[in-house]
């Protein structure tokens, strides 16, 4: 291929990636079509109606939507009926591939340096073996961050999630001081977002778009769950480290296998991080025994600046 063709091709590739990655987004007012072409009105698409008949629907109504405000703010504060979300993270399988981190960033339109999901290299004491430690928000049942919020901007829902209403947050950062797990991040300056993302209507369920002077964090992607899908970090992980599910149903899934939560915790001695703090996290860890990879493997192919993070440990 010639050079000029190449650039052209790249552009188109990016553009298709956008389509494929489902970056189609709906702004407060307007649906933004990911495919970039306007569908003429009046084109009909046949669909099966609930009573089994074929019906015709205007094709322009059939835009897939991702990261839209699916529910009212009121609903977003109450949670999804009957659910109690849990996550299980299998430390034995983590090789610091960082696919979860990038997937999360893509999903929430975060810049590279902002990580809601972090992978730390833990070494509990000088003699113990280091291990990779992916860390989401723990969505604690006794959340220290929610306790201290003066305006109910961060709140606990009945389905167990701890979410943030960025439209209400006053940016006091008290919740960041209160969180013992350094989960929350602050928008120190106006976030650099593409126009169509910046124009989106914020919902605590999507946590998009980021707003200057407010706090944000991992939200367990309740919008994905409402659509019957797993959070992006779960599906992005090549090793199936993350299991996400519902404690009421007693089921968690990593996209490939769906297992009973209680059984998994029992069989693999699941534990919660820093249990003694009394925060009662909704995230469980499976200890790093019988590991899939040697821990050093996680350092391979890392960009220099990320590799340097772990200099103190390894």
């Amino acid at each position: 291929m010639q050079n000029s063709d190449n650039t052209h091709g790249n552009e188109r590739r990016d553009f298709i990636k956008l389509t494929v990655l489902g970056a189609a987004a709906a702004a407060c007012g307007s649906a933004i079509c990911s495919c970039g072409k306007k569908e003429e009105e009046g084109k009909k698409v046949k669909l099966l109606s609930p009573d089994g008949k074929l019906v015709e629907v205007d094709s322009k109504h059939l835009k897939p939507v991702h990261k839209t405000v699916g529910v009212s703010n009121e609903e977003a504060r109450h949670g999804i009926p009957g659910r109690k979300f849990v996550m299980v993270i299998d430390l034995a399988k983590c090789g610091n591939a960082r696919k979860c981190v990038t997937a999360c960033q893509k999903m929430h339109h975060l810049p590279e340096e902002k990580e809601w999901l972090q992978v730390k290299l833990m070494m509990d004491n000088p003699e113990s073996a280091p291990y990779w430690f992916p860390k989401t928000c723990f969505h604690c049942d006794n959340p220290p961050c929610v306790k201290v919020c003066p305006v109910d901007a961060t709140f606990k829902r009945q389905d167990g999630l701890v979410l943030i209403d960025s439209d209400r947050c006053i940016g006091c950062k008290f919740c960041m001081a209160a969180c013992p797990y350094s989960t929350r991040v602050f928008n120190w300056s106006e976030p650099d977002l593409p126009e169509e993302v910046a124009g989106l209507c914020y919902s605590p369920e999507t946590s998009v778009p980021s707003k200057v002077g407010t706090v944000e964090k991992c939200d367990f992607c309740p919008d994905m769950v409402r659509a019957g899908q797993l959070p992006d970090c779960v599906t992005a992980c090549p090793n199936g480290v993350f299991y996400f599910g519902d404690e009421n149903e007693d089921v968690v899934s990593n996209g490939e296998e769906t297992v009973r939560f209680s059984q998994l915790i029992k069989d693999k001695s699941g534990y919660r991080f820093m249990e003694d703090l009394g925060t009662q996290p909704r995230v469980w860890y499976l200890p790093p025994t019988d590991r899939l990879f040697p821990v050093e493997r996680g350092l391979d192919d890392l960009p220099e600046n990320i590799k340097n993070r772990f200099n103190d440990v390894m």
Binding site: G29, S30, A31, L48, P50, V57, H61, T68
Partner: peptide, 24 residues
């Protein structure tokens, strides 16, 4: 107002679409 219009029509269609998908 145009944005608002789009918003309402969009919301309605999304809802209709979800309903259809859900009932199928």
């Amino acid at each position: 107002s145009k944005i608002n219009q789009l918003l309402t029509s969009f919301g309605k269609t999304v809802f209709a679409l979800l309903l259809i998908l859900w009932l199928t």
